[in-house]
């Protein structure tokens, strides 16, 4: 066996998959907001989430070769291209988010590029999900939930932070001027779903399935 065990964790056949918000959507089917919705929530389920650990020197080239993304070295920043993003989490930790289904191939390709160096790659796709918030009041809903400063002057596009969110943690990202993204741990998804419904109620909140 190899020194690090990588295996295809996704089924090849037809298997019903349930995203972290599956239960919440069933339990709290959302009535359309009265009037204009101030906040629109949309899950981006089943994306590939890989944690990369190591020094920039070790990771930079290989990561660029495999993903086409440059490893961001400025704290709390991320680099995105189309549906791929790579976010700084710590001086030796990054979150790579890719379209669904690419976790095994990407990890194998990365390990192939990076060889025997000191680094780690961990597939966490099953344990977290991305929730997108948009609408004119999205920022207010987030302000109810985090002590981070979300003002455009201090939270420009391309910034992402790992922080306390409501009474748990989350990653807050701003991929562009219109959208916010939350990266949420699976087990807290329902709590945060209910939290966001409550926080968004005064503005009108609705969900959007893609």
């Amino acid at each position: 066996m190899s020194k690090v065990e990588v295996f295809q964790q996704q089924p090849s056949g037809a298997v019903a998959a349930e995203s972290p918000f599956h239960f919440s959507r069933q339990r709290n089917p959302l009535a359309p907001a009265k009037g204009e919705a101030g906040v629109i929530m949309a899950e981006r389920p089943f994306l590939t989430h890989l944690i990369l650990r190591g020094t920039p020197e070790v990771l930079l080239g290989g990561v660029r070769n495999v993903t086409g993304l440059t490893l961001p070295q400025t704290p709390c920043s991320m680099n995105s291209k189309e549906d791929k993003s790579l976010q700084w989490l710590a001086p030796d930790e990054w979150l790579l988010i890719l379209p669904p289904g690419s976790e095994f191939s990407t990890e194998k390709a990365l390990r192939g590029e990076l060889g025997d160096g000191s680094y780690a790659i961990v597939n966490v796709s099953g344990g977290q999900t991305v929730l997108e918030l948009s609408g004119p009041n999205a920022r207010e809903v987030l302000m109810k939930s985090t002590s981070c400063d979300l003002h455009p002057r201090t939270f420009p596009e391309g910034r992402g932070v790992s922080t306390v969110f409501a009474k748990t943690g989350a990653i807050i990202r701003r991929p562009d001027a219109q959208r916010w993204e939350l990266v949420i741990r699976r087990s807290f998804a329902d709590y945060l779903y209910r939290w966001l419904l409550s926080a968004g109620a005064e503005y009108g909140i609705t969900t959007q399935e893609r």
Binding site: E18, F23, K144, K167, R186, S187, D190, Y191, W195
Partner: peptide, 18 residues
């Protein structure tokens, strides 16, 4: 504030909760 009733403390669910 909103930290009351079912939002007082986070409830963590497993994937099999339903």
């Amino acid at each position: 504030g909103p930290h009351r009733r079912e939002l007082f403390d986070p409830e963590r669910y497993t994937a099999l909760h339903a």
